[in-house]
Design a protein around this nucleic acid. Structure first.
Lengths: 222, 222
DNA sequence: CCCTCGATGATTGTATACAATCTTAGTCTT
DNA sequence: AAGACTAAGATTGTATACAATCATCGAGGG
């Protein structure tokens, strides 16, 4: 099981999760020698892993000076959230047009699971994590636009996870999110593309406005 | 002048232009050995250049099997155009909100140049190329969203150029494009973000519908 | 005749060695 | 004391050598 993928790929995967989980803090230097000592092998695969990380914007590489874990300013983060908002709203619109009826039924099933886990009051933490991600992921996939899927899940996803600001950790947020999800699925089911896009846009907007408030606050302080 | 950037970067730049210009046809195999013979140096920098190309989706790399110049199906191309349509419309909306008055004045200046070159009937070919690109580039930059700029100009731009289908090479197309550009700048100048977005969307839509027609036609034939 | 299998050659993945560049610490000058 | 220069160390970029994997082609069997 360790043979099909190359060493560079494995190190890349390890580093990716480490960075996204926050185990490697933004700004941490990743010298090739250090990686050799940590993961074994020689410099060549480590170098390749670093380059893969750079391709996904998880590290910043400066010629002759090495690579560091990406450290985003609030302004850069706002840029990313803006793009994500637009692309995911777009995905939702396309999903309303292109998802198969079966896929829509699966979405309903997912919502019922979430509803049950919230009612049992055991899934609040869960719902804000894996459950929410699963919902968004299925809609993105439902857009049937592979490049869009790639951009959202491959390029933006990691960064968004890395710098996840809880918009409001109030206890009733999971319920509200669920209701928003339900309306989105209803719009998709009705093949109402524009409504689906609008609802998704509103659903995500909270994170962006939160970020913009922090940004304004920061600029006020300086 | 050849020292500041690494050999890998130089080879990457060479290959990029070669691919975008069509000198390297889609599907062409890029073996590391071949690149060594063509550009000199050793395999390590060639390998790195190939990886950079992969990061921009200009080549596809299969483990243990090498890299080939990306070859897109019409469906994949449609996906890309869809995303580009959405992102560039978004950029235009943001530009209407964020461009400085000076930048808007420069846009007007650009339009006047274009108008003059079209009136002189010497710039038709030019206008469909550099002039058009310059206009779009300035608006993207005007969005003041660096990541958006990166995605449009860094990731999608090359592909779009590579597979550029002329939507209609009729003689009066340049004039129509100019008029559409003028309306877009007017909307931006009036800070009417939604109108600016709509106009840009329509302006680009032609390419996408053209592509969708070809796609439908192709599916009909099979 | 077609398919499967295996060996050879070519290509990629990895390891190691060397060269070029940057960083850091220390010294000297102003 | 502050700043600039220099030299040593460390790190990255490049070159070369070896190992692992894949593709091609031919032989053998069904």
């Amino acid at each position: 099981m360790n043979d099909n993928q190359t060493l560079a790929d494995k190190v890349f995967a390890e580093l990716t999760t480490a960075i996204v989980r926050g185990e490697l803090r933004p700004g941490t230097k990743l010298s090739e020698q250090t990686l050799v000592e940590r993961y074994g092998g020689s410099r060549a695969p480590m170098r390749e892993a670093i380059q893969k990380l750079e391709a996904r914007h998880l590290v910043v590489r400066i010629p002759h000076a090495g690579a560091r874990v990406v450290s985003l300013s609030l302004a850069e983060l706002r840029d990313i959230y803006e793009v994500r908002l637009e692309l995911e709203s777009m995905a939702c619109r396309l999903a309303a047009l292109r998802m198969s009826d079966d896929e829509i039924q699966e979405l309903y099933g997912l919502l019922q699971e979430h509803e049950a886990s919230i009612a049992a009051e055991q899934g609040q933490a869960y719902y804000q994590k894996a459950g929410d991600l699963d919902f968004h992921y299925r809609i993105i996939k439902g857009s049937q636009n592979h490049r869009l899927h790639q951009m959202l899940c491959g390029e933006l996803y990691h960064i968004v996870r890395m710098y996840r600001y809880q918009t409001s950790t109030s206890a009733k947020r999971p319920l509200q999110a669920l209701q928003e999800h339900q309306r989105i699925v209803e719009a998709i089911s009705a093949r109402d593309a524009e409504l689906a896009e609008l609802l998704m846009r509103r659903h995500i907007q909270a994170s962006l406005t939160n970020l913009e408030n922090r940004l304004a606050e920061e600029e006020g302080h300086s």
